[in-house]
């Protein structure tokens, strides 16, 4: 089942002589449950692609469908609502709300939606994230790895169609990095959660099902990893 379809997406920053083409007619199709790593040098356009997929940035031209919804035909308000129900975003710098505690940060998309949380789901999530004893802490009282786990929790609370992660381990040491990737993988495998991550780290990229390389705004390779004997 195709969960995401990107068609001829072009993004141009600036105007006239200073215009920069960040994405050049990118097309892409993602099946439900895929774990995709996007790699490429700095400035290649991979973050732009991720942000356009996540609906936080508009393409200059092109279309995108998530679960058959034409994302950029939505008005600003509906787009915001669509985002909080269908997309989970994880950033390098966590971007937690400093005045909200761990539980509230995780529940934020639900709170914004005015919905009640599912206690079981929350507790499962907290224990999987290893944050059960930290629910009342504020972000500034947590380590970097813990903060990133909170932001993953926030991305997953809604069972979104897509989880997008932009260098989720870029700010963490190797032990914490490994934990985060394990977590993401766990959700991918256990709940068939579709996952797209941007990374510089080859070891992380190699754990994905599919690696997309971007250079100068174009997809230069798109290959599936064929696992060895253990699979």
């Amino acid at each position: 089942m195709v969960i995401l379809k990107v068609e001829n997406v072009t993004k141009i920053y600036g105007k006239g002589n200073t215009a920069v083409k960040a994405l050049d007619k990118v097309s892409l199709s993602v099946e439900k449950g895929e774990f995709i790593a996007v790699v490429g040098p700095s400035g290649s356009g991979k973050s732009t692609l991720l942000h356009i997929i996540g609906g936080v940035d508009n393409p200059t031209s092109g279309k995108e469908y998530i679960n058959n919804t034409d994302v950029f035909s939505l008005n600003e308000n509906n787009l915001a609502i669509f985002r909080r129900r269908n997309i989970g975003l994880v950033y390098q710098f966590y971007n937690l709300i400093p005045v909200l505690n761990v539980e509230e940060n995780i529940l934020l998309p639900l709170l914004l939606d005015g919905r009640k949380e599912d206690k079981n789901h929350l507790n499962n999530l907290l224990s999987t994230l290893n944050l059960s004893d930290r629910t009342r802490h504020l972000p500034n009282q947590l380590s970097g790895g813990q903060q990133q786990r909170v932001s993953i929790g926030r991305a997953l609370i809604n069972n979104p169609a897509l989880v997008l992660a932009d260098e989720p381990t870029g700010n963490l040491d190797s032990k914490n990095s490994a934990e985060i990737i394990e977590l993401l993988q766990y959700y991918n495998k256990t709940y068939n959660q579709t996952l797209i991550i941007i990374t510089h780290d080859e070891r992380i990229a190699l754990q994905a099902d599919r690696i997309i390389s971007i250079e100068d705004g174009r997809i230069v390779s798109d290959e599936r990893i064929v696992r060895g004997v253990e699979k």
């Binding site: 936080v56 308000n77 985002r83 129900r85 950033y91 914004l112």
Partner: peptide, 16 residues
């Protein structure tokens, strides 16, 4: 600014 941007990225509407 950054906090606001974050709130909007997780789906806070303009009205909210």
């Amino acid at each position: 600014t950054r906090e606001f941007a974050m709130l909007r990225s997780v789906g806070m509407t303009s009205k909210g």
